[in-house]
C-alpha cells in the first residue's frame, strides 16, 4: 500500500496518468470480480490510448 502510494507519486512526475495504474485486492474465490475489474481496466486503458512521449514530458517532472 505504501509502495503503491509512493509509486503513484513518482509515476505522476513521470507523466503516467493516474488512470493507468490501479490497485485492487481480489481473492482467488472472486472470479467474477476479477473478470469485471480486468474488463473495466482494459477498456479504461484502451480509451487512453498509447502512452505518448510528449505527454510524459508535459508533466515536466515538477516535484
Amino acid at each position: 500500500m505504501r509502495r503503491y502510494r509512493l509509486m503513484k507519486k513518482v509515476l505522476e512526475q513521470l507523466g503516467v496518468e493516474d488512470e493507468r495504474v490501479r490497485l485492487e485486492w481480489i481473492s482467488s474465490a472472486e472470479g467474477t470480480k476479477f473478470a469485471k475489474v480486468m474488463a473495466e481496466f482494459t477498456e479504461q486503458v484502451r480509451q487512453l490510448g498509447p502512452f505518448k512521449q510528449d505527454q510524459k514530458a508535459a508533466a515536466g517532472g515538477e516535484g
Binding site: M1, R2, R5, L6, K9, V10, Q13, L14, G61, G63
Partner: peptide, 18 residues
C-alpha cells in the same frame, strides 16, 4: 493509510531524486 499518505507527501521531488 492517511498517516502513510502524509509521510509520503513529505518526500519532495521523488522522481527527480530517485
Amino acid at each position: 493509510p492517511e498517516e502513510a499518505d502524509r509521510i509520503i507527501s513529505e518526500i519532495v521531488d521523488p522522481a527527480g531524486t530517485f
